[in-house]
Amino acid sequence: MTRPPTAAQRRVIDAADPVTGRLRGTDFQLAALVRRGLAFRHPRPPHDHFLTPAGHRVREEERPATAPAAAEPAPVSGTAGVFAARVGGEEEIPATGPARTREVHSAWQGLLELRRMTNTDGAVDRPCDWERTHLVQAAALALEAAGHRPADGGAGSGGYRVQATPQPEAVAVREPDADALRACAATLEKAGWQAGEYTEPRTGVRYLLASPRRT
């Protein structure tokens, strides 16, 4: 790609589903994004369009300082706002209950579909490129979708917390309950991650170091 997307194309990219990368726009806009390598047309009906890894990178790159602020992305279809998995420790906790359960289930199914479409062999048991560039969000979605309880905003509260680490393609998962920590490891491994338990030398606290599996 030699030229940046047009303003109209940028709005289509920014409004893509945050998990699956599904796009909505005119036929002309979507075809132009496909030609640029920023989107692909799914071969199966209804032949929806989705962001490629390059399209996701364009969506996440910072705007030039002189560019006007982009409009807020459109809400995910069928929800009250853009979905985000709970990483644990949020100050503003999303509403719980059946509606949240449906949102999490839908996001997880969407992620499995994204794996099927973007992994070269169509595998759904192995993380895809989107997950490798959204490690914390991807690991948190796997945990929340499996029913694990995230920590609330209070310090020292029970529940999992997913955090970035200095290591490439690795997140730390902390959970004060030892049995719950092992259960988190089992869930991540089932979801296509490698997870090992480690001990912090200074505190003696156990935690998981998890990375997306490649094979």
Rank of each mutant, 00 (worst) to 15 (best):
T2F: 09
Y160S: 07
A32K: 09
A84L: 09
G204I: 10
A65H: 12
A140C: 05
M1V: 13
L30R: 06
G97I: 08
R35K: 13
R102H: 12
E131A: 06
R35Y: 04
T120E: 15
S106Y: 03
G122N: 12
A146L: 06
Q137H: 12
L33M: 07
A191F: 00
D48V: 00
L188Q: 07
A164S: 13
A8R: 14
P166A: 09
P150W: 02
A107T: 02
P150V: 01
A84C: 10
G110M: 03
E103P: 00
L51E: 11
P73F: 03
A145P: 00
A164K: 06
D27K: 15
R115A: 04
E175A: 04
T52I: 10
T2A: 13
P18C: 09
A67D: 10
R213T: 09
A164D: 15
T203H: 02
A180V: 03
L23Y: 11
D48W: 10
T187C: 09
A172G: 13
P94C: 11
A155V: 07
C184V: 01
L38A: 01
V58M: 05
R35D: 09
P5F: 11
R202H: 08
T66I: 07
G97V: 09
R161Q: 14
P166K: 05
T120V: 14
R182H: 08
S77M: 12
Q9V: 01
V124A: 15
